[in-house]
Each structure stands twice: as structure tokens, then as C-alpha cells.
Amino acid sequence: MKITLKVWRQKNSKEKGQFETYSLNSVSEDMSFLEMFDVLNEQLIREGKDPVAFDHDCREGICGMCSMYINGRAHGPMQGTTTCQLHMRHFNDGDTIVVEPWRAEPFPVIKDLVVNRSAFDRIIASGGYVSVNTGNAQDANSLPIAKHIADEAFAAAACIGCGACVAACKNSSAMLFVSAKVSQLSMLPQGKPERESRVVAMVKKMDEEGFGNCTNTGACEAECPKEISVMNIARLNREYIRAALASEEDV
């Protein structure tokens, strides 16, 4: 296949960027989207040009490192699929594909398509955990957890922290990411003791980082490669309101 790529190039966080156009003449339909970029980079290096920087690691859709806004969509056109799992057979010969980095104030561009997502780490550090030191644990089966609760907690915990929700949201809101972690831990008995302080701390941190506000468009859910439900956002809201209004604890 012949593919034309319009790729965002930006030397570093300080300099301005622009689109560059590249043609690839022999793209195999069995290639993944990132393997096409490997081929492009090989070509650029041989031509003495600077290869395109992009984030990637596991290439099996679980580490959450790959990003890319492809033809106006986070992780490209396929539902429930990360960029690394997107294959070229979903494109047509002669297509022009526009590739941009995630765009959000809290995700500044590092270079080309690489952005800094450490805001997510800081949100987790603010409360996305159960405070249990190693060695403190009781027997794993001492607290039975209903299967549907465990399943629901797992569905929320499946978040890979890639940031597609922020990228796809017209407001750059991180609510889906935050709600997934809050949901997981507030549903499980192990997370209940810190339920109130956790949600308040994480929302506070999220706001400080400069993410936008949720307007419930549902774009995050539609673009999430792990199909995390927006119902988690409703649960986050409920948890927050509960912590702020109903709890006697000063949080």
C-alpha cells in the first residue's frame, strides 16, 4: 500500500512545531501502525534526517505507553484498540493519515509525538492506593468479595493509564482515569477505610494539574482502548459528594 503521512514534528517542548508530510510506498497490511513508523524512521535515518519520536513499549496493548492522535481520533479508528494493536489493513491504499500528539495543557509535548503524562503519576501518588504496608496483610480469603463486585472492580482497574480519555475529551478532562482508580478502590472492602480522603485528594490533585472539567460527552469511553465505562465517572461524583457532604470527617 501507498500511504501519505502528515506528522506533527516538534523539536522540544520550547520550540514551535509543524506538520511534515512523508510518503511510504510499500506498507504491508500486516504491519501495525507503529511498525509503519519504524519503517519511516529507518528511511529518515538513511536519508540523514531526524527520525520521528513516538512513545511505545510493550506493543501488545497493555503498557499504555503508545499514544498518537490518528485522523482526529485517539489511538486511531478502531474501537478498544491501542495504536500498537492497530493494523494497516484498516486503512486503504493511497490514504493520507494525519498524526498528532495528545493535546492537553497537563500533557506538554516532549518531542514530536511524545508527551509528558507524569501528571497521572502524581494523581495516583496523591491517593490512588490502599495504605497497607508490606507484611500487614491478613489472609487473602478472610474478606469474601461478591463476584460481581470483584468483576466490576476489575473492569475499572483495567485502565492502562494511556491518556486517550484526556486526549479525546474536548475539555481535556482526566475524570475517566481518576474515576477508574477511585471506583476500583472504593468498591473493594480493602479500599473502604480511605474512601473519603482518597477521592478528595485525587480530585484536588487532578484539578491542580490543570485538567479540564467533565461535561459528560462520553468521548472518553468511546475512545478508551480498555473500554472503561463512564459509569465510573458517575461513581466518582457520588463518592466525592458523599465525602464532602455526608462524611463527618474533615476532608
Binding site: V132, A137, A153, A157, L188, Q190, G191
Partner: peptide
């Protein structure tokens, strides 16, 4: 065995049976 205890205490959502056991 301690590993499983520790992970469950951290909120790792292991698969469960209908009775709530791992």
C-alpha cells in the same frame, strides 16, 4: 502465600467465585 495476601490487601481484583472466595 504472603504475596497473595499482600496483593489482595492492596486492592488487586483477583478473579473470585460466586461465594466471594478467590
Amino acid at each position: 502465600t504472603s504475596i497473595i495476601d499482600q496483593c489482595v490487601a492492596q486492592g488487586v481484583p483477583f478473579a473470585r467465585e460466586y461465594g466471594g472466595m478467590l
